[in-house]
Design a protein around this nucleic acid. Structure first.
Length: 580
RNA sequence: GCGCCCGUAGCUCAGUUGGAUAGAGCGUUGGCCUCCGAAGCCAAAGGCCGUGCGUUCGAGUCGCACCGGGCGCGCCA
């Protein structure tokens, strides 16, 4: 690992120990994963390796004896990294655990106040992240929150690790429902002002479509005009899309997501490539006609389950568009990974599309297509989430409410603060709370939407992290210390300092895991743990009143923590404030 | 009918890929502001990890069956 020698600033302790113990196992003639993880209890040390027992089992050896052997090999190895010992001690425990305690000098070495928190990877990849992707026919509601902010966090984290990220907002701007909307827009005179409330506009169009056969016919005719490139239909369509995209963009900015208009790659953008997808599939001999439709049947998908790529009336479908998108992403965009953040209902769809893409050679074997599904939002009754009226909660309304509550809160807590600042704080705290409530949950499971929980400011929430950060800023203000004036390393002395140090050096390790699995809730859990460790340190170790040397050292811990919290929250798309 | 996901404290959720005595937050009960910010801290109570078999040194995690919930399965996206 030469990179580690050149830049001793950041690191992934788990990976480092994993490499070492794997090597030790090899010395004992064993090829097995060491399964290193953080210690399940602080008494055990900082990290533990659980892989020895499994290895012993498959070899018919005594696990404790083998663990002892590996321990010795581990201690015989060159134990240094960047000129200091990595490991303080390795112990065999229980049926064959290996407990590792990191060396304090090593910890300090990686806790330089002003050093970068993350080191760019030596193997950067091109990663396409497909997220948000709302349907432009409707206004964005709470259901769009998950894809948008989980995908955004994943994109930022991948970037922070040095990967090349290409955001793709695969908005739905094509399909039969647009005929209905455009027909309605024509009849109301084509004045954009009627689009001020997209939700209402959609409802009106829908009810007319359902009740008025003449209007329904006009809608279908509109689809035909649109798809055949009729100029006036196109102009209306563009007008509608424009208004809808502006609405989305305004919300993205309010949410603090990094999506830009340039990241929009709408479904319609793939229209011209669709016939070619069909002929390519045909060329590979993958097409089968079934009940008038063009289908692909693959054994790995269950031979009787078709992937329909062209309807019997000649029109293309969702699957066709996604296949065209894969060609574009794997080809022109040269993606190594393509990540799809969509809800789990589309799992089968993606399994099918990915399988067809692989069979058709639409992507090189090295390119991975990964669906990162998330569960649905349920109401407190465990049924799919709806308002009392049976509708959806608009994202705008949720954020308005969050900011209003946060404004009230900050006004009562900090009455002396000017109104402009209170507004800014309310914005950071309110939207932060909403985003964190969503981000902190494992994305794969369904989750319950609850106003009060989503707008909570106590406990494991964004405001808790923001508060910890603001307290550190306050510390520096009160002590009249410029954070930039600090230099050197934070050296753990007191137990609370050491616990904080071990948490601090894990930052990159957590980011690596989030990047691999697309699970930002791991970062939330980490930041909460870090803030808790900091609070413990803050309670137990007086900072400003300490003697010069100790004071400097503790300020370094505080500063390093502030930077980690701020960076971590930024990666989640959550703002920090200097006071609140 | 077939398939996918899920059932963990009163509530909302973690649980690092099979490891040690299952953890947080909210809520409840009790304590802490002459002390660097109480959006905080400390402590207590709270569990047959849906149920039952099985796999093995070891199961919340893996397999099978059942119960309960969500979702998906040929021309919507």
């Amino acid at each position: 690992m030469h990179a580690a020698l050149v830049t001793p600033t950041t690191m992934n302790p788990r990976r480092l120990l994993s490499t070492r113990i794997r090597k030790s196992l090899k010395t004992c003639g064993i090829e097995a994963p060491p399964l290193v993880r953080t210690a399940s209890k602080p008494e055990f040390g900082d990290y533990q390796a659980d892989g020895i027992m499994a290895a012993a089992k498959s070899l018919g050896k005594n696990p404790r004896a083998l663990a002892e052997q590996v321990r010795k090999a581990c201690l015989l190895q060159d134990r240094q990294c960047d000129g200091v010992d990595v490991i303080e001690s390795v112990d065999v425990a229980g049926p064959g655990f290996l407990n590792v305690r990191l060396n304090d000098e090593f910890l300090a070495r990686h806790l330089e106040v002003d050093a970068p928190l993350v080191e760019p990877t030596v193997r950067p990849q091109t990663v396409v992240v497909d997220y948000s992707s709302p349907n432009l026919a409707k206004e964005m509601h709470v259901g769009h929150l998950r894809s948008t902010i989980i995908g955004d966090a994943a994109a930022r984290i991948l970037e922070s690790l040095g990967h090349r990220v290409i955001r793709q907002n695969h908005v739905g701007d094509w399909g039969t429902q647009f005929g209905m909307l455009l027909a309605h827009l024509s009849e109301t005179g084509g004045d954009s002002r009627v689009l001020a409330d997209l939700e209402e506009f959609y409802r009106d169009a829908k009810s007319r479509f359902d009740s008025d056969p003449g209007f329904a016919d006009a809608s279908r005719a509109m689809v035909v005009s649109l798809q055949s490139g009729d100029e006036t239909a196109r102009a209306r369509w563009r007008q509608f899309i424009e208004v809808s995209l502006d609405h989305c963009q305004a919300l993205y900015e309010r949410l603090g997501t990094s999506l830009a208009r340039a990241d929009v790659m709408a479904e319609s953008a793939y229209n011209d490539g669709l016939p070619d997808v069909i002929s390519a599939l045909d060329g590979k001999g993958l097409l089968t006609e079934s009940e008038g439709a063009q289908c692909v049947f693959l054994p790995e998908l269950g031979s009787e389950l078709p992937v329909i790529v062209r309807k019997s009336d000649g029109a293309f479908l969702y699957a066709t568009t996604d296949l065209a998108a894969i060609r574009h992403r794997a080809g022109r965009l040269a993606a190594d990974r393509v990540l799809y953040f969509t809800d789990s209902r589309q799992s089968l769809h993606f399994r099918q599309v990915f399988a067809v893409a692989a069979a058709a050679g639409f992507k090189p074997p090295g390119t991975t297509l990964e669906h990162m599904p998330f569960g649905n939002m349920l109401g407190t009754d465990r049924r799919p989430f709806r308002t009392r009226e049976g509708g959806v909660v608009k994202l705008t309304d949720l954020l308005n409410e969050a900011e209003a509550r946060a404004f009230e809160e900050v006004s009562s807590r900090s009455p002396g603060m000017g109104e402009a600042e209170r507004r800014a704080v309310a914005r950071a705290v309110g939207t932060g709370a909403v985003k964190y409530a969503d981000l902190s949950k494992n994305r794969t499971s369904d989750y319950v939407f609850d106003w009060n929980r989503m707008l909570a400011f106590d406990g494991n929430t964004a405001p808790y992290l923001q508060y910890a950060y603001a307290r550190i800023r306050s510390l520096f203000r009160r002590g009249a210390v410029e954070p930039e004036s600090l230099e050197g390393v934070a050296h753990p002395e007191a137990p609370a300092e050491r616990a904080l140090a071990v948490a601090l050096v894990r930052f990159e390790e957590v980011l690596d895991q989030v990047a691999a699995e697309g699970m930002p809730h791991l970062l939330c859990g980490y930041l909460h743990d870090l803030a808790t460790k900091f609070t413990g340190f803050y309670e137990q170790c007086p900072i400003l009143g300490a003697d010069t040397g100790e004071r400097e050292n503790r300020l370094r811990f505080a500063q390093r923590t502030a930077r980690t919290l701020k960076t971590g929250l930024e990666l989640l798309g959550i703002e920090t404030v200097d006071r609140m």
